[in-house]
Design a protein around this nucleic acid. Sequence first.
DNA 1: GGCTTTTTTTCGAGCCTCAAAAAAATAGTG
DNA 2: CACTATTTTTTTGAGGCTCGAAAAAAAGCC
Lengths: 411, 411
Amino acid sequence: MSVGIRHDDLRRRNRAMVISAVRRAGQPSRTEIAATTGLSHSTISAISADLIHEGILTESKASEPTALKRGRPQIGLAQNPEAAAVLTVVLSLNFLSVAVIDYAGQVIAEEQQRLDTLVMPRDELIGECVAIVRRRLQDPDLDLGSVARIAMGIQGITDSHSRAMLWSPITPLTDIPFADILEKEFGIPATTENDCNMMAVALQWRDPERYRDDFIAILLSHGIGMGLVLKGALFTGTHSSGGEFGHMIHRPGGALCRCGRRGCVEAYAGNYAIWRSAMGISEDAAPTDVGDADMRALAAKARQEDGPEREAYRRAGEALGFGLGSLFALIDPAPVAMVGVSAAAFDLIEPALREAIAQTAGGQHSKSISFDTEPNELPLIREGCAMRALTFVDQEIFAPGGQARAGKHVA
Amino acid sequence: MSVGIRHDDLRRRNRAMVISAVRRAGQPSRTEIAATTGLSHSTISAISADLIHEGILTESKASEPTALKRGRPQIGLAQNPEAAAVLTVVLSLNFLSVAVIDYAGQVIAEEQQRLDTLVMPRDELIGECVAIVRRRLQDPDLDLGSVARIAMGIQGITDSHSRAMLWSPITPLTDIPFADILEKEFGIPATTENDCNMMAVALQWRDPERYRDDFIAILLSHGIGMGLVLKGALFTGTHSSGGEFGHMIHRPGGALCRCGRRGCVEAYAGNYAIWRSAMGISEDAAPTDVGDADMRALAAKARQEDGPEREAYRRAGEALGFGLGSLFALIDPAPVAMVGVSAAAFDLIEPALREAIAQTAGGQHSKSISFDTEPNELPLIREGCAMRALTFVDQEIFAPGGQARAGKHVA
DNA sequence: GGCTTTTTTTCGAGCCTCAAAAAAATAGTG
DNA sequence: CACTATTTTTTTGAGGCTCGAAAAAAAGCC
């Protein structure tokens, strides 16, 4: 249960608040921080003096061309890039990429690699991931000791504590505790994050205006994934990363899904499902992987003339619309970002999608629901992982203490 | 955005923590409170001395027959019944009930009334609610000044801030701001809560062992409602009370639902839907109200012989199962409590329900999902309202301060 | 009655935040 | 260029909170 606030927690929490305020705002002055946090100027002054002294923040005076205001000019504060670094690993279908990012959020090194995830044995898959991380960490240009966190984004279901990949469409393997493996190998705290959740995190940082408290990021790719932010916080399941929008039931007993079950939304709206439908292949046929180029060609064909291709996208839209309708019945409508290769074909999907939503409980506001599209998911996933790792460093390393002590006696 | 902790917030929060610990535990000693909150003995001693002095808590020494332990005996602390009172109003189909509850949670007065909610005009419905509350408040046995909060539980959709009823199956009227009406009338802070949410709150208090962090309460009655607790907190939509499980889509374009749309779970599993199906009435037929006695007779018939009645329950189970399957895809499986008159017929529903769940993403753990039944929803709703109101008094009245001051500058 | 054990209270120390005042840094002004 | 007005930042002293240790209280045990 919730735990009391000890006196020493107070400073810790307010430190964390200042660090987070600096990361969120561009280069806020102490006065701005005082305003957003509600703390007094003196407190902010004391805390930021500490943080600067410890090398966590820096004064970035040479920022703007001094806005020609009267009075003492504001001194912007910013994350000190040298305070720490984080490493992101993104594992998706046949593709592995790693980046090292400094504490201010700038990419300082990266490496990418193709690999055949679908057929690799367990040891090899793990080995490649470890190896690529090791190469980046041992880069002579980089100070190894400074990497404070690894965040791995992975296509598939992860557990709710972000420790392991439980199931993934990119490999037949299951239950790989990547976080533990990386921690053991490198002695650096690590997490294993769901790709769609990281997309949502990235959107929240990219456009906090639009994506703030409540929104949905849907990945339209081979499979259908979702990252959900509710009341400003990432939503996860009770045991897993949750939010398996693609496996909500659209038609009981319907088309065969990649997950082996029938009638899932994905079995109508995933790339393979659209392809299967457009090619006149049976709904009972096993899903096949379809390349991005093929999907783009399919969309072009659908735009050109009314035929089975267009109908396939229409059916995808219908499945997504009824799925979203059911979701909206639970959480109320919220802005949606469509991400991934099929987001580029959203013009083909949208009409049927809106028509379906209009027939559901969320439909009363169907016109006000806004959709945004972003065809490229990988940069989003990496950005999300980076922000995840950086905020961890902000909170747990540079404002440490609380968790370990308080609440130890809680039943 | 999150806001800094001011120095004076500290005591306020820890006060709130102590009050809440006392309400949660039976009659905890100061030592127990220190253990659960993680605060030091001296702090707990100081805070509880304050609270006792202010008449909020009392020492309830004569509690147990002293467990024959060595050492100074523990002194139990408890809510002082006279510190305040709250009032609950429960409005459901053709039925209005009010109760006054003391600060320790004991019912000290109640009144119930039948009324024809389906046909009452707006003014009359509001008038009856106000009148019954006034009668209780003006009871000469009761000290009016001590009622510190009114919680109204209402069948239907409320807004996410618990101010108004937005839509309800018990009346054609919409958007009635009951909370504002009651506040204006009596000068007592009030809320308008969703009935199923209050069921969930009540279950959490009744059996915290089973219903703690993640569980689902489903109302099987005229309509299908849901109260959802995730990570220990009541889940609400972004605008409304949310959790409209009954209006997730089971079969696109399917049976006619009371909400006017088609294919909702409720259109297969609500009382009227089961009745319609058992009687061989068309799925397009307008929903009719079915009495509880009729439903019990229907269930008896279904148990007696395999016929359309049993098939109707089977179809209800299927709809509930696929709906739960979709829900579990989003939040992972969790314990379920089935409440309401059709929960008494859960034996007829369960086989098809489990079969359907097994075909969904949540199905992998379908055997471990446990169902509990509770046929009577009204006491649960009242209990939930009472706890809602009491914890408000705990937090906002007896540990006040924070909200109003902190964060006023947050953009 | 004295001893042990456990709970509760008391007390001084150490921090933390706050408000107010002081200091710092710049733009305007004559 | 000195001086004033303005705004930001730092300093300072006061008050309040929690903590640990020690003391006090209240029982059982022998």
